[in-house]
Design a protein around this nucleic acid. Structure first.
Lengths: 234, 234
DNA sequence: TCAGCGCAAGAGCGCTGCTCTCTTTTTGAT
DNA sequence: ATCAAAAAGAGAGCAGCGCTCTTGCGCTGA
């Protein structure tokens, strides 16, 4: 039992952490598809079969890394938001801060970003365990917009009639206190943020965009305006 | 020499095509990482080493598939645009048609879409040969916007001062006859389109967006407005 | 006609994920 | 303190992978 006390349980926790650390190192260095259980075991001085006591398959190890990556990104984004808020920045500026730290995190951890937001590893489907961790950035963007909604600076985007049922459904699920128009724009902005980061990270901007920092900031501002945020103090 | 005449050369072309066909089948069925040279050879009744006469490595086979995928997507997009134009649809409607066919193609060819727009296969970097094929959709979107620019229906987006140099550089490279503001919005829209498609395809919309067709159409319209396109006849 | 080239075949290397068995070590209840 | 049970490590082994090298056959162009 992993929650039991004693030297054995502690050792198990430590070995599990060591495996994840080494796996994360290999992931960062070589990418997910080159992550090898045998190589991890070799580096840790154990035999490959022993590793299966801790992770029943390579996919389970990958799942653990995916959750960690989501959490790392989510934590970065959340602390960026709080940093901006502590600096008396309004929702618009908090939005920008979160977008920029997501981009930064992606550029700093390309293989981990690819693992969570890139093409799924073939034959692998993320289990439901990953859902809460995966939702953190999205929830954060919702939270920022909610603050703006309760304050002064939120313009309401438009919405075609055909989309209204779906918009209301999404709003009921994600943020019942926000107008459906805003929730729809939020979901789209979230996906588009991912597109901007992905294009830069995966090289589609090579020979196209040079000053990516400035370009990204402008795009992030447009996304913020798309959900009704406007610059200015709280 | 592959361009030479004779039965030998023809056989080579046929075998090469058969290999690509079988590889594409496996790619569609299992994904890029599970594409196996040995399995392709097995299916074709040849021994694996024989296949290396046609593709010097697995990566070269993948490159061939990538180019084909880009071309297939590009062709779909181009004919969708022409179809819309033949139906007397204006640039706005052509834009929507192209976006929707890109999404459709991605849903119909998920593994091929992942191959070209998802995380790069680790250890693999796309050679420059792929660049022209990869640019087709982008060029098409530029072309649609250019038509609108020469016609009546193009509003000019705004641009912050800091982005102006980069915007002018991009415009000079991509579309010297279009205003830098429009080119900037185009590049962003292109990336965001990819984000919308990717999120749906890779499952990030699970449990979030239900009526994806309608949602996507709305988002595509917003992208069109972002580059200054407005609904209406030519 | 015949040398040379293209091509297929097979063996083999080192790697992978994973399973099974065997042994050692630790644990918790008697 | 004792002892059975649980947990963990070690090693062999299976099937598959990309890729290389050598061998030998058959078509082809001079």
């Amino acid at each position: 039992m992993s929650t039991a006390h004693g030297a054995r349980a502690r050792a198990r926790i430590e070995v599990t952490a060591a495996i994840k650390d080494e796996a994360r190192r290999q992931l960062a260095a070589e990418g997910a598809a080159r992550l090898s259980l045998r190589a991890v075991a070799r580096e840790l001085g154990m035999v490959s079969s022993a590793l299966y006591r801790y992770f029943p398959s390579r996919d389970d190890l990958l799942t653990a890394l995916i959750i960690d990556a989501y959490d790392s990104l989510g934590e970065s984004a959340e602390s960026a938001r709080e940093g901006a808020r502590d600096a008396a920045a309004g929702p618009f500026e908090q939005w920008i801060a979160v977008c920029e730290v997501v981009r930064r995190w992606a550029l700093d951890h390309p293989h981990e970003y690819a693992l969570i937001y890139g093409s799924p590893v073939p034959g692998y489907t993320a289990p439901d365990v990953t859902v809460p961790a995966a939702a953190r950035v999205g929830l954060l963007l919702i939270g920022i917009t909610r603050d703006a909604h309760h304050g002064p600076g939120l313009a309401r985007p438009s919405l075609p009639a055909g989309l209204r049922p779906e918009a209301e459904r999404m709003a009921a699920d994600l943020a019942p206190d926000l107008p459906p128009e805003v929730v729809t724009a939020l979901v789209a902005a979230w996906a588009q943020l991912y597109g901007l980061v992905g294009f830069e990270l995966f090289g589609q901007f090579n020979r196209v965009v040079e000053d990516r920092e400035t370009f990204f900031r402008h795009a992030a501002e447009q996304l913020a305006r798309g959900v009704g945020l406007v610059p200015g103090p709280v």
